[in-house]
């Protein structure tokens, strides 16, 4: 999977590239409008992550250019502006998703995965993690070939974990992923704990293993080891 990151902020770009590379993507980085234009012209990426504000141009133009060459890349906008007009404009000209700074790397990663999954046009595409098999389209999960009934949030939580496997995922980023701005952080932690407890229980009932490790005070890690 090839990803192009268009981001002018060096420190931010480094983190994103490092995180995505560790997640198994081949990640290229353009730090200016010009370099982005060059790269998008010569190569087709599975996903392009674009920061709207660039020193030598507007990220929206990068998207317009991608659209004009009929690129099949999925597009995610990164913006510091949480303005609705920007969001609407970005989605209008063909971006697939929108993420506002400051975001969690885990969240960006989950969104990229979801986007690539959607764009791969393979509805049967299943995510397999040992005995757990998730089908994101009909939102079903099987463990050892037995159907697992999950609530909406439990399902989202499981996908989020699998997308960020072998990573420490903070409880804040889980809360953000599950509820967005709907909940104040503090209150959501109890809810995460409850959801997680139920999820673990349900998987173990079907003979599945508990892959969730608690990283005390920080969050959780979904890992095979």
């Amino acid at each position: 999977m090839n990803i192009l990151l268009v981001e002018d902020e060096k420190s931010l770009g480094e983190s994103i590239v490092a995180y995505l590379t560790k997640s198994g993507y081949h990640c290229e980085w353009a730090n200016s409008f010009n370099s982005a234009s060059e790269k998008t012209w010569s190569y087709e990426y599975d996903c392009v992550v674009v920061d709207i504000t660039l020193p030598d141009g507007n990220g929206l133009e990068v998207i317009e250019r991608l659209k004009s060459i009929k690129s099949k890349s999925g597009i995610i906008i990164i913006s510091a502006k949480n303005a609705i007009e920007d969001r609407i404009k970005g989605l209008d000209i063909g971006a697939d998703d929108y993420i506002t700074k400051p975001f969690d790397l885990a969240e960006l990663n989950a969104r990229i995965r979801a986007l690539i999954r959607r764009r791969s046009f393979d509805a049967q595409n299943e995510i397999v993690f040992n005995e757990i098999c998730v089908s994101p389209y009909d939102r079903t999960v099987t463990v050892n070939d037995q159907n697992l009934t999950l609530t909406k949030k439990e399902f989202d939580l499981l996908i989020f974990f699998i997308s960020n496997q072998n990573r420490v995922v903070t409880k804040e980023s889980i809360a953000e992923h599950l509820w967005g701005d709907n909940m104040d952080m503090a209150d959501s932690f109890d809810f995460i704990y409850s959801h997680l407890k139920n999820l673990r229980k349900k998987i173990q009932e079907k003979g599945g293993e508990d892959y969730v490790q608690t990283v005390y005070g920080v969050g959780y890690k979904f890992t095979k080891n």
């Binding site: 902020e9 420190s11 931010l12 983190s15 994103i16 490092a18 995180y19 560790k22 504000t53 510091a80 502006k81 949480n82 303005a83 506002t100 700074k101 400051p102 975001f103 969690d104 790397l105 885990a106 990573r167 420490v168 903070t170 980023s173 990283v215 920080v218 969050g219």
Partner: peptide, 24 residues
């Protein structure tokens, strides 16, 4: 308001993401 929220976001994003990287 826009500038403040805009300019603050990037450093915040850096702090957050660097911390996230460190946590790994």
């Amino acid at each position: 308001t826009e500038n403040t929220s805009h300019e603050i976001q990037t450093p915040l994003a850096i702090i957050k993401n660097k911390a996230e990287m460190l946590l790994q």
